[in-house]
Structures are given as C-alpha cells and as structure tokens.
Design a protein around this nucleic acid. Structure first.
Lengths: 337, 337
DNA sequence: CTGAAAGCGCTTACAG
DNA sequence: CTGAAAGCGCTTACAG
C-alpha cells in the first residue's frame, strides 16, 4: 500500500505538505504542489480513509438506519435512499443503508463504535426508543418522520394533512360522501404507533367533519388473501364508495379482491393509494389514482438537514412535503343510484 | 470519549491487557479480567472501531454494491440483502448497501479508500467493468451472478437452467406448446449483457427443442403502458398460449394489459413470473404462478462465500440455486380449440 | 509556505 | 499471564 510517507519521500517534502495538497487545506506553492501531484499519480496513491478518520475524528460515513429485519424496504424508501445518497455524495459523504433492528440495542452498539458520523433514521414511531439512543450517544441525526414531540429534533416528513386533504377532496369532488381509510400494516404485531399511520388517521378524522363526510378507519395486515381482504374492508363500512389505502401492496390486493368479489373499480367503488409509488399505480388494473410519496425530495432534504448539523451550519426549519396527486383510472364519479 | 487507556488506568493494568480481554485474544487471569470488565462497565467503555480498524487493518465492513442509481432495488434484492446482512452480522461483520454507480470508476474510488474489507457485487453483467476494478484492487469479493467466465471468481447465482425448466415443464404439462419469454428491462438502454437475461434466454433456447416446443423471446422496457405492452407481446408470437415473464413489474403490467385487451388469464393465455417475489404474486389478479427468486438462500451463501475468502477458509464450490415453484392461478390447461 | 512532532485509539509482536 | 513499545496512516496545532 502506498502511503503519504511514500509520496512525501518521492516528492522530497514532508507528509504534512502532502496532506495539505491532498486536502487542499493550506496554501502550497505551485511548484511543490506539482511535484506532489506527480508523485501521487506515479505511485498510484489513494488516501486511506480509516487513518484519515482516526486522525480527524470523522469517518464521513452516514448511516441510513432502516429496520430491514422488521419491515421490508419499499419502493418509496429506495427512492428516498437513492436521492439522499446522491446529495450526501455531492458533499463528500458516504450514505449507506445500515441494517439495524428496531429495538434500539443494536443501534446503540453501532453508535458506540463511532464508525458513523451521523444517522438518518427511518420508519419513526411516535415513541421511538431508537431516538433516545441517538440522543444519548451524541451522534448527530435527523429523523425521516416525527416522534410525538417533533420539535425536539431535526426532521423532515410527509405533510399528512395536505396529503389526506388532497385525496379526500378529490373523492369529494367526485361526489363520494362515505369514505374508508385502510391502514395496511407491513408487520404482524400491528402498527398503532407508526408515525404515518397515526398522522394519516388523525388528519382523516379531523378533516371529515369539516367536509361533512363520513369515514371509518380499518387496520389490516399483509397475510390475508385478496378476496377476504376486500370483503372485510367493504363490510367494515358498507356505505363507503371511496377508499383510501395507505400501503401499495394493500392497495393492489384490495383492487384485485374487489374485482374478484364482483365489485367494479371505479364503477362501484373508487380506490386511491396514499404515500404510494408511481410504479405501483402502473401495475394496477385499472391504473391506480394515488398521492405519490415524495421520496426524492425527502431524501435530499433529509441528507441536507443531517449534513448541516454535522457541519454546524444554521439549521433549516423542519420541512413537511405533501404527496403529489397522480391521476389514474381507479376513481370516478359516484354512481347516482 | 472513554478509551482503553482510561479503562487500563482504572483497572490498574496495561492497555494491552485490556485489549486481550476486549477481544478475548489471549488468556487473562479471572481476577484481572474481572477488574477490567468492571472498569469497562463503570466507565461505559465502547471499543472504537476506527482505531481498531487502523491497527488491525480490517474494518469489518462489507459492502453490498448495487447500482441503485441505474436500477431500482427490487423485492428479491432486498430479501437477499436482509439475509446476507444477518449472516454477516452473526460472524462479526457489518454488511451495508453501498450505493455505487455501474461504471467502475466510483467503485475504484471506494476501494482505494480501504474502508471496506470485502464486496458483494450485485447485478452482474456478462462483461462487467466493476469486476476488473475489484480484481485489480485486491479487495476480496464475491459475485451474486456470473460474468462470461464464471470460474475465475467466487460467486453464487440462480440456477437458470433448472428455473426455466421448472416453468416450461409446468406449462408443457398443461398442454402449452407455443411459448413466449418476456425479458422486462428495468433500464432504458436495454440489457443484453445483463446476466439473468442472457442466461434465461440461453436456457430457454436450449430447452425448447428438447421438449419439441416452439418459443420466441421479446425484450421490453418499463415505459410502455399495460395495454400496448400486452398487444405487442401477443403480436410478437400470436400462437403462444403460455408466457414467461422475467421481471415482476412487467409480469403484473402484462396480466393487467391482457385483461384490458380482452384476453382471459389463464383462460386464453397462461402467464408465469420468473425470478419473482412471492409478494408480487399476491397483488396480481389472478394470483401469479411463479418461480420464486431464492433471495434469502443466495444472501446467506453469498455472505458465506465472501467471509470464507476474508478469513482464508477453504473456498466452497460455487453454488447455483434454483427458483422454487409457487403455484398461483395464472396458469391453466390449454383450451382445446 | 513548509516541516517536525504529537496524537487519534487501538493491535500485536516481543520480552519477561 | 502481563507490560512496554512500536506502529497502523493520517491530521493538525505549532514553530519557523
């Protein structure tokens, strides 16, 4: 392995000077700089990031902490990651997905090793033990989502009020007065405390009276087959002609199940996806009308928020990003009966 | 930050001895061990992984290199990752997803920093520039997939011959004699060199004459809408009553498109997914019959192969894992016409 | 502008 | 079984 020492000897300078040109951290005369650069090229020098990290006390590694063992990474999260990684890379950081389970212990161990400079925490619960662990560790972090007390931390999140309003108003404009909100849990044990569920439900419950609509919420899980799922959802609120569905997988299964049980979408019932990926809409028949999750924008904002913290820049105010309306063919005017 | 030095002083021993008990690397009398452990607990000592990495020349970080900027991470890859990460974790390694673009340059830069001890390379092309980069770098690696010359490297891959045979024989047993293979490209520029495409196509072309069946292959991309997609695929081989589809997204879109264009699945045409996620089958209407990608098993085997290399263990022979048949309702006997 | 030197927090021969 | 010391490859005051 070629080290700075080798380069320094080859160029006839001290390793400090080599460091100054590698990092562009102090002025160096053009002549010495040229000698050093030539030596680096000739020897094929690559700066050792581990040594750099130890000396500078910064690894420049950021961890996207996602509970992959408990909850599968979905399309929107992958979009989020890609966008956040690009933003981090542009500012000289590595952003990697670090698989950590949800209970906080494993995260504590990771942070104790001081291998990562900062954390982007995903799939935040209202009361999330991982947040306490992060706080105690002193590692800078930003939340993608919010806890019960949002303003204690840096975060970016989806604007659930605006998203629910967008969906509800779309259906209301089509004449639907009775709505069902379906929360499709990706985990077995239920998700009452999961931020997106709690906030979507709250926004839904607050908005319906304002719009003089009726609504019910039902939580389902991933194990049921499409037919049973559709029957159960319809039975939970038989008057509903409009259904909002929180996760993509559940939305697609519901549409399939409605058809198989003889209900026409959108003829009998209109269905919309919430926080969905455009990609999911395209595989649905009919193409799903949806509120598209703002993965790319959240990714950029999340990475920015974290990096500003790391670099002691002025924090930006927390941002809430609404989902965008994406037209499909799964919603239509209520049938006059 | 509490260091080994602090622990050593607190326990009245040298830092070497602390290191011996932390790593369990040399015998230490129970009495001193107890003193040291007590000191660690009392001071809240956590071993600094960066310093450890520099001194031992091993970071214990393994990178799952996936070209996230070019190709979206799909469900099977996520399953692969989760399983590989668990296997790595059990052996004391961190396995993280490192976003690196496909062209090799970025990978070279990453490896030069010596931040990762080993690489699991995904989405391998037949001629993959990233493999040359890995080889030159001296970083241990294993391929998930194979290049044109498989046996020069450690790899694990899907058994495409067995997988194609499983699908073809299922359809042949139902009486289908004319088959179409659809390769659904996730990227714009086509994927001729992408391992799974090339090997599936080759297996398909080799098998059909043996079974005295006819077949055609068609490559499509992700931009077309479902109806146009279905029309084009049917037109490419009008006699076909059985269709095999390589990627999940394309399979779902095709089934939707067939229905919308008036063809019944499986009444008129049987459709099967190849290398698919069980999850995708469940959101399809009718539920998709498929050959399930062995993400979890490949993940375990891939992590093992890499770690054996890192630890200078005897290499295991390369493994090919077949997809498992997963019954659905998208295939049925050929209609006698 | 450049260099000598301390130090980042560990591991690992080596000696006893 | 334990310790003193060198060394991993850098960064960063400090001095000149």
């Amino acid at each position: 392995m070629v080290t700075m020492k080798d380069v320094a000897e080859h160029a006839g300078v001290s390793i400090a000077t080599v460091s100054f040109v590698v990092n562009d951290t102090k002025p160096v005369t053009p002549a010495t700089r040229a000698r050093i650069e030539a030596a680096m090229v000739e020897l094929g020098y690559r700066r050792n990031a581990v040594a750099r990290a130890l000396a500078s006390r910064r690894t420049r590694i950021l961890a996207l902490v996602y509970p992959v063992f408990e909850r599968p990474l979905n399309t929107s999260s992958v979009e989020f990651f890609t966008s956040a990684a690009a933003a981090a890379s542009a500012r000289g950081y590595h952003l990697v997905i670090w698989p950590v389970s949800n209970d906080g212990r494993e995260l504590g161990e990771l942070l104790g090793q001081r291998l990562v400079d900062g954390v982007l925490l995903m799939e935040v619960q209202l009361d999330d033990s991982r947040v306490q662990v992060l706080e105690r560790s002193g590692t800078p972090f930003a939340l993608i989502g919010r806890t019960r007390e949002p303003d204690r931390y840096r975060y970016v999140d989806i604007d659930f009020e605006a998203t629910v309003a967008g969906a509800v108003d779309h259906l209301a404009a089509l004449g639907h007065q009775h709505l069902t909100l379906v929360l499709g849990s990706g985990v077995d044990h239920g998700d009452r405390d999961y931020g997106p569920f709690a906030r979507t439900r709250a926004a839904f419950d607050a908005l319906l009276p304002e719009r003089t609509l009726t609504g019910r919420t039902i939580e389902v899980n991933q194990t049921e087959d499409a037919t049973a799922l559709a029957d159960r959802i319809v039975a939970s609120h038989p008057a509903a002609t409009g259904i909002l569905v929180l996760n993509d997988h559940t939305a697609l299964r519901l549409v399939a199940g409605l058809r198989r049980t003889g209900r026409k979408v959108p003829g009998d019932i209109s269905v919309m996806g919430l926080l969905a990926a455009a990609e999911s809409g395209m595989v649905c028949d009919p193409p799903l009308t949806l509120m598209r999750a703002p993965g790319p924008e959240l990714g950029r904002l999340g990475a920015d928020a974290l990096i500003r913290d790391l670099e002691k820049d002025e924090p930006l105010p927390p941002r809430l990003v609404p989902c965008a309306f994406e037209p499909g063919q799964s919603t239509a005017p209520r049938r006059s009966s």
